[in-house]
Design a binder for these strands. Structure first.
Lengths: 211, 211, 211, 211
DNA sequence: AATGAATGAGAATTCATTCAT
DNA sequence: AATGAATGAATTCTCATTCAT
């Protein structure tokens, strides 16, 4: 009858509601941080209880902030997406012309080798998930890098965004699950970059060796 | 306690013990087959109970053959490895000279897009797991393909087995989790193969476009 | 421990303590009102949290006024009892002579078909509960109606208060849980009233049909 | 893929599947029996854990037999319905002509005073629930009694099944929740029966008092 | 060997209640 | 007085594993 407060949504997204009290925000962040760590280590089947314990809060607190395990997982993703997107902006400015895409991919794969979640995330690009908004941002960002690199002649013209995302996803999964070390990472990426690069006929070709 | 009962090994590997009765072997195979299907569909967290049901046996029977869920999972892997290895031998004989590695990778990735387990398996290559024996066989087989392709000048000299495995793993994970369709698979592999191929300066280079 | 803090009674009854501040009283009433609605809809297992939300106050406020869910439930009952009692007085004055009891029962059952709480309440009449005081008032009121109806010859002499209460309770439960529609309600009550009425030998008897 | 065994239904109804092993059936019955007792005492919000404890089995066993708490509740109901229906048949044969309906109602209300579940059940008559089948049987049985009593002239012609069920439901709720003692039960039923009986003009009418 | 019933340790989630702000 | 964050016990349900039949 009295609709006063709408049933709380099941996403755990504070959205634009009211700003959380300082202590609540601290806890929320603590929980996300630890959750990220826990799920990174043990995969998404790790128990919410453990997240709570590591964050130093009671189980109820976790569920107050994220009414569902799914919601917690999604919150983590959203955070990740945002961080990736920031990184994207920085790169667009800083990287050597034409090398932006490579720099970005390298960076992401490096992280993936440590964080299980990055991988799970990447797998969702191209798919849906309720995180749609930030997801599109990321796609857009990557596309910018791609186009820029192609303009600089560093990446073949016929490469499309889809393939780049596919490669990124695959490489991250690999880096994570197979635990590539820094060297293997570098060598593997080199091969892929070579494939993306296309052949400037002359110079680059004569290196003869993958560094 | 009962000294006459030999401690069952926890691997579920019948090894060289006594040859299973005919019906027992039939059951064992049926279980593995269905387990493969179930885990492929629902991931490794699918329930053993379901495997039993689909195989048409009682849960006890599954645990008789594989004293642990882990053991069942490992048995599946071993089977996979063996099949991959066979495929390898065939390819070594059948593929166009120099294209063996590509053919193999293509084949495996194709399967991965369907079968969750292939991927999980590949992630373990280079890592340990008790399946070491067959694993080495697979590595060896892939190495053969690699060398052969390099001799034919189709794959760059400086590419090493490790990178090939890394790429294979990554590509499979990607194909599986991101659900690549046939076209995306082809385009993505094309890029990677281009990277592996290196540029024999002339001919191959002039294609200009990824098909 | 802190000797200055008087042990709060667990009834939530402000009693004769200090008169609540105006806004506090407003809140108290708002809470009771919404609680009634919520429990009516979802039964007594509805969450206190929801009551708070609908009343537009924080959960703490609810527990400030009613230190226990039980206390809240009891407060609702007390309110109900009081309202019923008022209705009783009105009826005593307004109804056609001899029909007061029937009018009252009809009214209560009608409400019950909608409000879960009325029922729960009625079930407690004759039983205990800390609401004893108002409860007695209600019994008294109903007794007055009964006696009056008996004097008018509309209700048999040998019917006692206990049976009336029993019937009332039963009918309300029925009306509520089985969701009687208006027609079924009328027909069912007609039978019961017939039973209460007894047969003044002549006149009334000849109707032959329940309306 | 292999449909071998259909996903187990969520009703916990062994149906016509395979006959349970002797020990399993023993447990199943034990569980239902104790569940009936527990829910009778504490209402349907009593914990499944307690049922398990009282039945002397592990919690998993309860859920194996009844995959849902709902399923357990329904199984209890079905049992009750069957018992009621048997009772119905007996009565049809044994009761004094014309008194069958009264005898049945009396019997059911008597039980209700003890068993919470009977009440909950009755509330469902006329409503749905998946127990439809047995439910219809019960309705039919009661209708038979009604008709028979009407033929004997003991129950008014214009009384319909709906009202009988409504009264039965209401009386049971009352008997249960208000804890009527034997005497109150008798007196209350007497009033209702009087209402159902209608007035044989002469004899019965002159009793003047409800016994 | 096979069966399938029983076990019981989790896991996710809810909710009355407390208490610092 | 009010707020609303935190607590943690309790509840339903799942599943790997054991063991009597």
């Amino acid at each position: 009858m009295t609709p006063s407060k709408p049933t709380p949504d099941r996403t755990g997204d504070p959205g634009t509601a009211r700003p959380l009290r300082a202590d609540a925000r601290r806890n929320r962040e603590r929980i996300i941080a630890e959750a990220e760590a826990v799920f990174a280590e043990k995969g998404p089947s790790a128990s919410t209880e453990e997240v709570a314990a590591r964050a130093g809060v009671a189980i109820g607190t976790v569920f107050k902030h994220f009414p569902t395990k799914q919601a917690l997982l999604q919150a983590i993703m959203k955070g990740l997406l945002e961080r990736l997107h920031e990184e994207l902006s920085t790169l667009a400015a800083d990287a050597r012309p034409g090398e932006e895409l490579f720099a970005f991919v390298t960076g992401v794969v490096e992280q993936a080798a440590r964080k299980r979640t990055v991988v799970t995330l990447l797998a969702e690009i191209g798919v849906d998930l309720q995180v749609a908004g930030s997801l599109q941002l990321l796609r857009d960002g990557i596309e910018t890098l791609l186009v820029r690199s192609q303009r600089a002649g560093t990446v073949r013209e016929d490469v499309r965004l889809d393939e780049v995302l596919a490669l990124l996803t695959g490489l991250c999964h690999g880096a994570l699950h197979a635990g590539w070390d820094a060297d293997l990472q570098r060598r593997t990426l080199a091969i892929v970059f070579e494939g993306l690069r296309g052949q400037p006929e002359g110079a680059a070709r004569s290196r003869g060796s993958i560094r």
